[in-house]
């Protein structure tokens, strides 16, 4: 009953001047419940120990393992091989700098995004260690968490044609991040300050509504509605002042 799978995997080591980008094939017997994580490790341990890829949590919570699997950016750790035909093609995520083979540098990109969107609570309050915490409506807390669930995997960025063309575009993850702070009452930024952060083609207005982000987000974040929310808020902010 076990099928033979063929993996066609992108290979390239940007450090090595003698390395050229190519596709390499590996074959493997499928096991029950096999994920791409299991398969790649098996290939590394049994066939090619030089193969580079990233996994950390192997449970779809850390966002390390996104790659393009048969034409779609996905988390490799939660992708089951049984959902595919016999040949599975693995490519590294576009947009991000290639580290080697399937590994890309999403970390640097997202840190840059956090810096540009100033992804931290802006407040003039000082932390008072003996005071009770500020109250917050539970609904508000849940609402913040809804967008905070982004695991910075990069699937939304990789799938977005705009992000592929414009290097400075912050993508759905970036716009969503700003939305997260907009609904947080602890953040004292004014609408205009948010406007300065993403009121341009690098942010909200750069998005052309291609919706690959919404299709591909492995966390199922409601990116379409979130992007529209931010676009409306930012537009009103820009018009008011």
């Amino acid at each position: 009953m076990s099928r033979q799978l063929t993996f066609s995997i992108f290979r390239y080591n940007p450090n090595d001047p003698s390395s050229a980008p190519r596709m390499q094939e590996y074959t493997l017997n499928e096991s029950t419940g096999m994920t791409i994580f299991v398969a790649l490790n098996q290939i590394r341990e049994e066939q090619d120990p030089s193969l580079n890829f990233d996994f950390v949590c192997r449970a779809a919570i850390c966002g390390s393992c996104a790659m393009v699997i048969n034409g779609r950016p996905r988390l490799a750790c939660k992708t089951l091989t049984k959902d595919f035909k016999d040949t599975i093609t693995l490519m590294p995520l576009p947009v991000f700098k290639l580290v080697g083979d399937l590994a890309v540098d999403t970390g640097t990109w997202f840190r840059h995004m956090s810096l540009k969107t100033e992804s931290w609570i802006h407040t003039n309050k000082k932390f008072d260690p003996i005071a009770q915490e500020d109250r917050m409506d539970n609904e508000v807390a849940l609402n913040i968490y809804e967008s905070e669930r982004c695991i910075e995997c990069g699937c939304c960025i990789a799938g977005c044609a705009t992000a592929n063309i414009r290097e400075e575009f912050l993508g759905a993850a970036g716009i969503n991040r700003v939305g997260r702070f907009m609904v947080d009452p602890r953040d004292e930024r004014s609408d205009m300050e948010y406007f300065e952060v993403i009121g341009s083609d690098e942010g909200a207005f750069g998005c052309m509504g291609l919706m690959a982000c919404d299709d591909n987000c492995p966390m199922g974040l409601p990116l379409q509605l979130q992007l529209a929310f931010v676009r409306r808020k930012i537009t009103m902010a820009g018009l008011k002042s």
Binding site: V68, R72, P94, A161, N164, G209, L210, M211, A212, D215
Partner: peptide, 13 residues
């Protein structure tokens, strides 16, 4: 991009 990554709305655009 459109050919490699399957995104319906990218084709719509």
């Amino acid at each position: 991009h459109a050919k490699m990554l399957k995104g319906t709305d990218t084709w719509v655009w």
